[in-house]
Structure formats: C-alpha cells, structure tokens
Amino acid sequence: MTGLIDTGGQSLHDWLIDEDIKSRRQALAQRWYFGLRHLLSSPIAVLGLVIVVALVLAAAFAPLLATHNPYRQDLGRALLAPSSAHWMGTDELGRDVWSRLVYGSRTTLYITMLVTVLVAPVGFLIGALAGFIGGWLDTVLMRLTDIFLAFPSLVLALAFSAALGPGIENAVLAIALTIWPPVARLARAETLTVRNSDYVASARLQGASTLRILWRHLVPVCLPSIIVRLTLNMASVILTAAGLGFLGLGAQPPLAEWGAMAAAGRQYLIDAWWLTTFPGLAILLVSMAFNLLGDGLRDMLDPRKG
C-alpha cells in the first residue's frame, strides 16, 4: 500500500494520523480514514455494510454460489419443499429458488446502481442551479420539484411504468423520475449555504465560470449529504422496484427479480410458502442494510444529527 502513496518516509498509519498535514492529498486521506474509523466503530453501520458487501459479492459470484441453473425449468420437479438438494425449494416451473435468489441480487444491484447514477447528477444539477442562479430559474425548478413531490412515489412510478411499458429499464426510469426531487431540494439547500461565501466570491472574481464553480466548489460541499440521502433512498428504491415487480411492471419473466418472485408465489402461498417467504426476506434484509448504512454514514458525516 505504502508504495502507492508518497508518505514522505512515514509508515502509512503514522501518515494518516499525523497532525502536521503536509499536502492536500494527506488531508483528504485523513478525512476518509477518520470517517471510516468512525463508521466502523458503530456495530449497526458495520452490519449494514457487511450485508451490502455480501449483496455485491453474491451478484459478482452468482455462478459460483448458485447450485442450479436459475432459468432451467423442470416441471417434473415443480413446487418441491426445501431439502438438501434444493435449499429453498423449487418454484412452479421447477426452478431452484436459492439459485434464482442469488441471481436476483444482480437485478437488485442493477436497479439501485442505475437509479443512483441517473438521479445523483440530475438532482444535483437541478438543485445547485436553482440555488446558485436563483431568481425565476429557482422558482420554476422548485415548482417542478413540488409537483413531483406532491405525488405518492409508488403511484407516480406506476403511472410512468404504465406509460413506458413493462421492463426493467423502464422501471429504472420510472423510479428515477420519482426519486430526484428530494436530492434536488438537498442540493439547493446546501448550495444556498455557500453561495454567498467568500471563497465562492473569490473564485468568481478570478473569472471562474458557473460550471467551474458548480464542479469545483459546490460538488464537494453537496456530496456528503447527497451520498447519505442516496444511501437511505436505496432502501426505498428497492422497495419500490419490488412493488413494481409485484404488480408485474418491473422485470419481466424469466429474469430473476425478488419482487416478481414473491408475486409469482402468491398463487401457491398456502401450499408452497417458500416461494414468497425467501424473496421477501431478501428484500427486507437488503433494504434494511441500506437503511443501517445510511444512518451510519449520516452520523459519520454529521455527528450533530444523531
């Protein structure tokens, strides 16, 4: 590790805790180091982190973890109860539930990542522009935000999915359309706190363009709170995606998606409890993990709000 960073002859640990900071990079590294230490000191946040890491590993190594082909149907082995051959039983088409659950982690991760990648820059840009430029642009953008906020989010996502047609990409788009307003609000609030600060004024006097100020001076200010917001949002993204899947609007068969799996089990609820129970538990576990991690990150980035 020490080879990667120039620590000026100190050991990496000494360099990270040295109070005599010599470079910008060292300051940044120290901030991350202390933040991480703070995060890891909370057992609850660590639990969340562990589950999220497990989700990522499950998605990455799905072929190794799955005991069966998640898509191969075998009607002769349909609706088998959990056993040593099928740890979580088989579904109505004879597919192995455990293997489908493992592959379903890819769908969950895909949806949450894609929503985040779409929402973070759009939400930031709308909020920061509204806050930084102000005036009529602020009024228009915030009114737009209010309109989206006025809707219950699942109903709005339902309407968009209905219009766009079923499918996982459309579900992602529909969820992204309902998630951006709180991010924009947050970015606006953070922008307003620094808009009139001296360092922004000095950057402007030096001739920095609006875009440069947004990128160099506002992004670093907004980033921590946006990261917390998005982590907490991931829990609701997962629940909304599962809800859409349950209503048949998200991922389409035969793709393994937890909400759709739970929905398919509804018909066999009484005879084959494992079809609904396990996918639902997976959703619960992952969305809880994101909630725990988000709370931990919030405590880490802002210890005042416990």
Partner: peptide, 11 residues
C-alpha cells in the same frame, strides 16, 4: 421502513 408491505401482507 425496510419491509416490503405486500410481502408482509402475504406473510
């Protein structure tokens, strides 16, 4: 905050 409500209903 974390439970999928439709699943809770089915359970």
């Amino acid at each position: 905050y974390s439970t999928p409500i439709f699943w809770l209903g089915m359970m």
